[in-house]
Write a protein that binds this DNA or RNA. Sequence first.
DNA 1: CCAAATTGCTTCATCCATGT
DNA 2: ACATGGATGAAGCAATTTGG
Length: 396
Amino acid sequence: TELKNRILAQIPELKAYREGRDVLLAFENDMGPALRKMCDDNYDSDAICLARAASIVRKDMLDRNMKFIGSFDKDCQTNAVPQSLLALVDMILHGPNINSKYKTQATLSIAQLLQFNSSKRRREGSTGIYHNKSRETPLPIYLGVTVHAKTRKRDLIDSLFHLGLSISYDRVMEISTLMNNRICQKYHAEQLVCPPNLRPGLFITAAIDNIDHNPSSTTAADSFHGTGISLFQYPTPDNEGRCESHIETSDEELLPCNTLFELPDSYTNVQPLVLPKKDVKLPEADFPLNNNFHIFDQASQNETEWLNNVEEKYMQDVTYDSNISWAAYHASQLEVHSCLPTITAMLPLFQDDSKSVAMIRHSMDVIKQAVDKLHPSQVPVITLDQPLYQGWGEVL
DNA sequence: CCAAATTGCTTCATCCATGT
DNA sequence: ACATGGATGAAGCAATTTGG
């Protein structure tokens, strides 16, 4: 309507005919004067050009129907916005002659924000912006979720949302619930808890430790003395493992967005365990247990070398590569090979005391399940610190 | 115009740092 | 050890906006 009024104001020879919802513009008298007037009015023809360009791009934008499925793929930024919008933004930013295939991140960001903040029809005098889920783009989602994950500050997300940069706080909550439910569904389907960022085919080590959150405030009613289990994988350039972080999104509609699923019972229920009172008979090993004393010789030789190094260097000034400490010396003696960052995953926490034998037994079961799934041929490797190790010995 | 979606507001409960 | 107030989040409801 605004466009119609502008056009009518500029070209009074035009007449508007209403036909249902559409408005037809037609010339009342003959075409000549009107055309001439349009050509003369250079200023407004720019405006018409802009309006035309905008409506072309808008049509593409509003036709988009994206849905956030829980993860971003590599080209999600480009795929989230129509090509015409990208081209337009790129032309505005870098001039119309550049036809580069590689869009800058600024182009992508601006285009995504445009798409995110667009609406099909705005009511006269409406103040706020209502965002449509089907036109959500990766950038505002990423921004909102990341800011929440790092800071957990609601007002920060709210102000970003009011600036049109991020999704609303409610939407962040909704997405987090959705992710939880999806991953719980996966755990239920497999009947074991195995974080999806771990990769099949890589060696796994596990660590069990007690988690003690003992708030310093005197009124903190409950402290947390639980158990945490971490899994580690060590990818190398030769074997990076198969990356299967994609969670299937089969029955999308069935997942409620307002209630949280629970973890499988087989994970959360720690079975009680009674240790036999008497000494247990150890099974006989089916291979000879011989003493590899040359390992100890090698180890003591390493220690001697370290002590020699300390003796040699302790009088001198300490520099970056003095490597005085035990760990630094031995690390410097290792051969350097390229290695990728370790993949770590933390399993959901347990409330049970980590020193109890039942908990340790359950940890072993849980770790074994995860190892069997990811790297079936492997013997589980578990590390623990001293108080837990005592209980561990009892379990064994 | 109207139903559906989205957003804003309020209330209530809980947690926890801080001060006394 | 206790009170207090800020921060947070869930839930419900109302208001507003959108899109057919």
